[in-house]
Amino acid sequence: MIRDSQDMTGVPVYYSTTYRFDEDRNPLQDAVRDSLKEQNKSAAEIKTAVSETYTDAQLATKQEVHDHLQVVGELWALTRIQMVQRQIDGTVGT
């Protein structure tokens, strides 16, 4: 996990907002779509199922983002506690 790793200590991390192409995604979604068409599912059911179909790479990416946001949330919570405590103590701005 991000919190436990010391491998990147002192190394800046740049998060990309660009789309990551996953070659396995389209064939997987096509297979799901074809299977549901054979079962005579509605277009809406097919669309929902296809949109909820993820490859292992997509799941790994989602987990990485979740872990990162968890750490950011924890840091914000700690920072906010310190800010509130300073307001209570009257030491804000000193």
Rank of each mutant, 00 (worst) to 15 (best):
Q29W: 06
Q87W: 10
Y54T: 04
V32A: 08
A49V: 02
D34R: 09
R86N: 09
Q82R: 15
V11A: 07
L28P: 03
M83C: 06
Y19V: 05
D67A: 13
T48D: 04
M1R: 10
R3M: 13
K62F: 14
D24M: 12
G90D: 07
R20V: 10
Q39F: 07
Y15K: 03
R33W: 09
T17Q: 03
N26K: 15
A31S: 12
Y19A: 02
T17S: 06
Y15E: 05
D67Q: 12
N26F: 13
G93H: 01
E23M: 11
T91G: 02
K47G: 01
I81L: 11
T91F: 04
W76P: 00
R80F: 12
K37E: 11
S51W: 01
Q29N: 08
V71A: 05
E45A: 05
S35E: 11
D7L: 15
D22K: 07
V92Q: 08
L69E: 09
S51Q: 04
T17N: 07
K62L: 12
Q87Y: 12
W76E: 05
D7M: 13
E64P: 02
A77K: 13
A44V: 07
L59N: 12
W76M: 09
E52S: 05
A49K: 01
V84N: 03
L59S: 11
Q29T: 10
S35L: 05
V50T: 04
D34K: 11
T18M: 11
Q39H: 07
E52Y: 03
V92K: 05
V11C: 03
